[in-house]
Design a binder for these strands. Structure first.
Lengths: 130, 130
DNA sequence: TCATCATATCAGTTAGTGGTGATATTATAA
DNA sequence: TTATAATATCACCACTAACTGATATGATGA
């Protein structure tokens, strides 16, 4: 079913995916201070040049940032003040649910886990991350 | 470098990852209407039972939803009103950048692409999704 | 207790996603 | 032009994350 509501949700998930990677988030946070060139972003975030450029391209394609060419430099900026607002709101939420997010095993790569059931399948399993 | 700022960003990325999947988003949107049992959520979202349960577990672990056991039913609810606020803000942003997000190739599985350069590497490449 | 319903967990599979290094592109200055 | 600096693209690899189907767990009523 690809009705309007479903499409809307997928679109929104895409939007959030723009924020859901720490590299992109670092870039967006860097841009909170104001427009920056790629080189500056590389410097402040510590990401590699190609990686930074890839993420910037992604953010631009998704409309989260805008670009302006200045000579051989390209300046990136947040495209909308509500993006800053969203980041701030996330900060607030994080302040309250931080403990939960921090301990959320679903986003971790792996973690030790004590066996809890005497299931027949006594394999050493690691829950999948979400 | 695992300084405070980096950790903070990774935490925030995790938070956003909670919203960055269409299944989880559908669940969260369903909960905007009020608390629901797992079965109700399965019905309204159309997701499978195990999939729904997995995502709910994730959302709970991350503090985005709370649970309350009622007999053999478990009722889920949004844990904080600001989560609704975040969703609403995302909607607003989406209204303006929707076109960009919609066309953002970085999140698509694949797409046809016309060759643009006469590069030596004339392989049929598909840009990776972010 | 036993049967059944609601929910949770698990293992396996598959597809998606991020990072890197090499290379291409573009813009400027010499 | 040509050299060089800034940025973008590409192909590959490794890892992550979602979905499914089977099964386990837990609660309730008969």
């Amino acid at each position: 079913m690809l009705n309007a509501k479903t499409q809307r949700i997928e679109l929104e998930a895409k939007l959030f995916r723009g924020f859901s990677d720490s590299s992109r988030l670092a870039i967006l946070r860097a841009l909170l201070e104001g427009p920056s060139t790629v080189g500056e972003i590389v410097e402040t975030t510590g990401l590699s040049q190609s990686n930074t450029s890839n993420h910037l391209g992604c953010l631009r394609d998704c409309g989260l940032v805008t670009t302006e060419q200045n000579g051989r430099f390209v300046s990136y900026a947040l495209s909308d003040r509500r993006i800053a607002e969203l980041l701030r709101l996330a900060d607030e939420i994080l302040a309250d649910v931080a403990k939960g997010v921090y301990e959320c095993v679903h986003y971790e790569k792996s973690y030790p886990r004590r066996p809890k059931s005497r299931s027949v399948r006594s394999g050493t399993s690691t829950p999948r991350a979400h």
